[in-house]
Amino acid sequence: MFVRRCIVGVLIASAVCAPAIAQSFSVGATVVPHRTAVRAQADFPVPASSRRLTTHTFGSSWYVPDAMHATAAFYRGAMAQRGYRVVADDTRRDAVSLHWERDGERVEIRLQPVLGDDAGTRMIFNASAG
């Protein structure tokens, strides 16, 4: 008898809650790039005295010996000179995320200050082609 009451209670609760859940439920998807952006990687500008830290198929990470906001200003100018269109520019006190597009290639640059080094920035560069 107890088991039947619990099951009935769950069914009633499900029927009552289902419309509310259906109205607030959303689904998102991230499409993983499948081709490298050859042109974007070939002409990607890097500030003077920067050191490459890692490399992968879609980009690389760098140590830039400049403050984060100065590095962001460098990229805003350099990417515009190369014909890129700004897609997103999210600037915060502790991070900067920049996105550009040119001829079907997308470039993302994420910047973070290096801990313990006010004049240093960690830069992550990713480029993909659609």
Rank of each mutant, 00 (worst) to 15 (best):
V38P: 00
L98S: 01
Y75C: 01
V32M: 14
P113L: 02
M79T: 04
V64A: 11
F44A: 10
W100Y: 05
F44C: 08
R51I: 13
V86T: 07
G77I: 08
R106T: 15
W100S: 08
S50E: 14
D89G: 11
R51Q: 15
R35H: 14
G104L: 10
V114L: 05
R110C: 00
R51H: 12
F74Y: 05
S61G: 07
A95L: 06
R110T: 05
L53C: 04
A88M: 10
V107N: 04
F58Y: 11
S61A: 04
M68K: 01
H56I: 12
D90N: 08
L111P: 00
V32K: 11
Q41L: 05
P47I: 15
Q41C: 05
E108W: 07
A67E: 07
G59I: 13
T91L: 14
S49K: 14
Y63T: 14
S49P: 00
V86M: 06
P33H: 13
V96Y: 05
T54S: 13
L98N: 02
R52K: 13
S60P: 01
D94G: 03
A80P: 06
S61H: 06
S61N: 05
T54F: 08
F58G: 02
Q41K: 05
M79R: 01
I109T: 05
V87L: 15
D66H: 12
P47W: 15
A40M: 08
A37Y: 02
F44Y: 08
I109K: 03
Q81C: 02
R35W: 10
P33C: 14
A48H: 08
Y63I: 13
S60N: 07
Y84V: 09
D66P: 02
W62Y: 10
T55E: 15
Q81K: 06
Q81G: 03
R39D: 12
R82Q: 10
V31G: 14
A78C: 08
R92S: 10
A67Q: 04
A73F: 02
G83A: 07
T36P: 06
D66A: 14
R82S: 09
L53W: 01
R76D: 08
D43H: 11
R52D: 12
M68V: 11
D43Y: 09
Y63G: 09
A72S: 00
A73I: 12
A95R: 13
R106V: 13
R39W: 11
G83L: 07
A72T: 00
L98R: 00
W100A: 09
D66G: 11
T55H: 10
V96F: 10
I109L: 08
G77D: 11
S60V: 00
H56G: 13
D43K: 02
R35D: 15
E101W: 02
V86Y: 05
Y75P: 00
V96R: 07
M68G: 01
L53E: 07
G83D: 12
R52L: 06
A29K: 09
A42E: 08
P45W: 14
E108H: 09
A37H: 02
T57R: 04
Q112C: 09
T71K: 00
L115A: 13
Y75S: 00
V96K: 02
R106C: 13
D90E: 15
Q112P: 01
A80E: 15
G59E: 04
F58H: 03
W100H: 03
V86K: 02
A72I: 04
A70I: 06
T57Q: 06
A40N: 10
D90T: 10
W100M: 05
P33K: 12
T91P: 02
L115E: 14
D103V: 03
V38K: 00
